[in-house]
Write a protein that binds this DNA or RNA. Structure first.
Lengths: 333, 333
DNA sequence: CATTGTATTGTAAGTACTTACATATATTTT
DNA sequence: AAAATATATGTAAGTACTTACAATACAATG
């Protein structure tokens, strides 16, 4: 069952069938309808490989991320997949487990699969050492590369970012206004967005004339119990803090558990602000105040930008979206 | 850059190059090494479309699920993607949003993309009305279909299941042994696995000579606050229960929040058992006792079975895996 | 040494599409 | 009505592989 069968039954040439297939305007309505009818009758589906061979491209986008089971990335993948499908694109997924070797291997693999573009989801995608990202910059010479919540400069690379810095700046400011003076900051990674959040926190302190204390800033694995235990340890060591801000809700949940364990009352005695406004935020008692990084909007914007690229328009190399502070019960404001 | 360039430079025919590409044994070692060296020097990558055209197949598996952002499915996708990649297969993802129309559309789409097999992840994939699944049974005539945690009988369909029924049977039994007499059961959907869990709960009651009370069994959306509010409503209406079992940790978290709201103490006054042993399980205080549905093992088994199918072996049409009861702090046992 | 068999390689015909260019038909202009 | 133009369709040459079958080379056997 191929294009010849259709052309034969419709009494036209294969070129005409192909034109109908590709929505060419150079086909009369009468012929188009006829061909369409025959295709339907025959239950004909064009062969993707032959199509890809001819066109050199296929309606497929590669999505790479470190770990699709991470809630934040899982949502990103969901919104990307859905959005792309709306434009008729399929998604092929690659999880790198955050190893540079895998990142390089899979990017190469996606290119050899002739995907039309590659979306890199998550700020952890970008290596701290800039030259370690050369393979991305190089790949971008031949295929559009989109970063969701990650930043890398380069030709043919478009980034969509959340204004994390302003968000934590604002949130920390409100914490200070509500009386907090010793705000502990917990972050998971030194990624672009991770550092942005941290800088916003520091901005707020500076803006209010408070010192940026190194003994209030800690890195912690993205794990509820790890965060709880770290806080417990700091508590025991005598460190005082009246608020905890985190780069991820997971850590904030850990902070709530720390407060429970030490019988500190939230938010009177301890304020907590999470990040990502994930489903964890409503799991705790009291429920978490959290910064919504608007992953859905981030994905939608990324796809919009990609479509501009595909249509040859000049797409912005960098789009920034404002975050949303979602007030719940772990803060006084 | 194609197979001709390689053949020319290596001084062999394209057939020989192709044989090297496909690991044919009918090539002398000397020739193979030569061709491999030339490929490497030229940086040659075979064109997937031409390859697919010739072979009629491509190293790609379609994965369908209702919603990749659901934690359970997100993990399934992760393990499937990783496992398949280990065998050299790519994954293309389709989220159906649980609409029958989408399921049919995407299954057709995956078939037209000539994927080598389709994995249906999640029990919600199967429609309650059996004839609504005919499109799957039909598709299975032409392409292997694997169900992860879902059940459908049919030729060329292989199911990997978790023994949910035994798991809830055992768990409910322990609850009864620890003194509970009015165990509330909350479930999210009437899927195959959903019903299995419910039946296990009923088995345990029956086995202990307790009545199965309709007023203790409720359906609830998969949402923390919805579960909490439902329990609050039941509580207010005067219903008594001394334990809550749920088909998903999300609902169990809601139960913990209900207990907090009504100042009932866990587990003395109220026992709670969740399902899936997800990351939610350690978010609450006290932490959730939960049944681990062993999604990783489920995915690994599915892939093993698929490889048997690919190799022409006779794969089991149904494999069952035992669940694991993870004891934490919301139960007395 | 001729014959048979086996291992290796090459030729050529698929595989199912796209599209530049040529041609035929229809429409408009003069 | 002829010429010019626009529209519609067809022909044929890509696109980059696989593989059945043919051909060759080379070793083993009688």
């Amino acid at each position: 069952m191929n294009i010849y069968d259709v052309s034969k039954k419709a009494g036209v040439s294969i070129a005409t069938v192909s034109r109908v297939l590709n929505g060419s305007p150079n086909v009369s309505d009468r012929t188009r309808n006829l061909v369409l009818k025959v295709m339907d009758e025959l239950g004909y589906t064009p062969n993707v490989f032959a199509r890809g061979l001819g066109l050199g491209t296929i309606q497929t986008i590669g999505i790479m991320c470190s770990d699709s089971s991470d809630p934040y990335l899982a949502h990103a993948i969901y919104y990307l997949e859905q959005g792309l499908r709306g434009y008729g694109y399929d998604s092929i997924l690659c999880c790198t487990g955050n190893s540079l070797e895998n990142k390089q291997k899979y990017l190469e693999l996606l290119r050899s699969k002739k995907v039309d573009a590659i979306i890199l989801a998550g700020s952890k995608f970008i290596e701290p050492k800039l030259r370690d990202n050369d393979y991305i910059t190089e790949a971008a010479q031949e295929i559009p590369i989109m970063l969701v919540n990650g930043f890398l400069e380069g030709n043919n690379i478009c980034c969509t970012l959340c204004d994390d810095r302003s968000a934590t700046h604002e949130a920390a400011g409100k914490l200070i206004a509500s009386g907090c003076r010793s705000i502990l900051y917990l972050y998971t990674s030194r990624s672009y967005s991770g550092m942005g959040k941290l800088h916003g926190y520091q901005d707020a302190l500076g803006g209010c004339g408070l010192p940026v204390r190194k003994d209030l800033i800690y890195q912690c694995p993205k794990d509820v119990l790890a965060a709880r235990d770290l806080l417990l340890k700091l508590h025991t060591s005598g460190l005082f803090f009246d608020a905890v801000m985190t780069s991820d809700d997971t850590l904030a949940v850990g902070a709530v558990k720390y407060a429970h364990a030490t019988r500190r009352s939230i938010p009177d005695d301890l304020s907590i602000i999470g990040y990502n406004n994930s489903s964890y935020a409503v799991c705790t008692d009291p429920e978490l105040t959290s910064i919504d990084s608007r992953i859905e909007a981030l994905c939608a914007t990324t796809i919009n930008t990609l479509m501009i690229v595909f249509n040859g328009g000049n797409a912005p190399s960098r789009t920034t979206i404002a975050a949303d502070l979602i007030k719940r019960a772990t803060t006084k404001f």
